[in-house]
């Protein structure tokens, strides 16, 4: 925390120097890449919490596609795209100003790092995707989402208990794509309760694994509390053929499905 604060001051100084027309060469070695293009009030905190001591650059190739305004704060559709950045080992999606910031972590093994999902937003916030490449560098892109809010502190529609007979039920389909790739779209019935709504304990799916027919992992995903109720996810897999889905929630309930192309 202290380290991060110091670093921020240094960059502020660098920025002032540039404004004053003073040569920045003395500071150039310490590239000011962590000046947040989204100008988030929480950036220092987010950086310290999730990326402390790690290499990080803002990268225009990473896009977070979101509606300009959240029509339904309980169900904001997001698509993360990477414009072909190679060797992405992990993707993390964070909403800076959500009471629970981390939305998901994704490890695309034989899959594109691009992923689509929906999440619950509490107030207007930056939404950013960070992609860690093989060389250990985090590449960050993002956007501001405007929202009336209240998404995280509202009980799930399913908190009435209607989901109980259908927990873990999977709807899914595979679409062939060019170059021996395929799109998997998946919906799992789950209340995905954040624990922030009064009287409704935290309850969410925390692991989904996708495997090919030989049992080799295609991708692994850790959803967190902000993912919307009955998650709908789209994956772009670098394989063809059946996909085995297995997952569980924080109470150990499991679900499995085999989707035939």
């Amino acid at each position: 925390m202290f380290r991060s604060r110091t670093r921020f001051r240094a960059y502020s100084l660098a920025a002032s120097c540039l404004l004053l027309g003073v040569s920045s060469s003395a500071l150039a070695g310490d590239a000011p890449s962590t000046i947040d293009p989204l100008n988030s009030p929480s950036w220092q905190y987010v950086q310290a919490r999730y990326f402390d001591g790690q290499k990080l650059i803002f990268d225009d190739r990473i896009k977070v596609l979101a509606p300009t305004a959240a029509e339904d704060p309980l169900d904001v559709p997001i698509m993360v795209t990477s414009d072909g950045i190679a060797d992405v080992e992990e993707v993390v999606v964070i909403a800076d100003l959500n009471p629970i910031q981390k939305i998901l972590a994704y490890q695309p093994k034989r899959a594109s790092p691009d992923i689509s999902f929906r999440f619950k937003v509490e107030q207007s916030t930056p939404v950013r995707a960070a992609m860690r490449t093989k060389d250990g560098v985090w590449h960050l892109g993002g956007t501001w989402l405007s929202a009336a809010g209240g998404g995280c502190t509202t009980p799930s529609g399913g908190s009435s208990g209607l989901w109980q007979g259908h927990l873990g039920e999977v709807n899914a389909r595979i679409w062939p794509r060019e170059d021996k790739n395929q799109r998997l779209r998946l919906r799992v019935i789950h209340p995905m309760d954040t624990g922030l709504a009064k009287g409704v304990p935290v309850f969410y799916i925390d692991q989904i694994t996708l495997r090919d027919d030989s049992g080799a992992e295609l991708a692994t995903l850790q959803p967190f509390e902000p993912i919307s109720e009955n998650p709908v996810l789209s994956f772009d897999l670098k394989n063809v053929g059946p996909v085995h889905v297995e997952g569980h929630d924080i109470q150990g309930n499991t679900f499995t499905a085999t989707i035939q192309p």
Partner: peptide, 26 residues
């Protein structure tokens, strides 16, 4: 248009996603 997509698409997409193996509780 984007608002309408948000309103209408979730039901429409679900129609093309077939139900898979039922939940397994362990």
């Amino acid at each position: 248009f984007p608002r309408s997509v948000t309103h209408l698409y979730p039901d429409i997409e679900l129609n093309v996603l077939p139900k898979q193996t039922a939940a397994k509780h362990e």
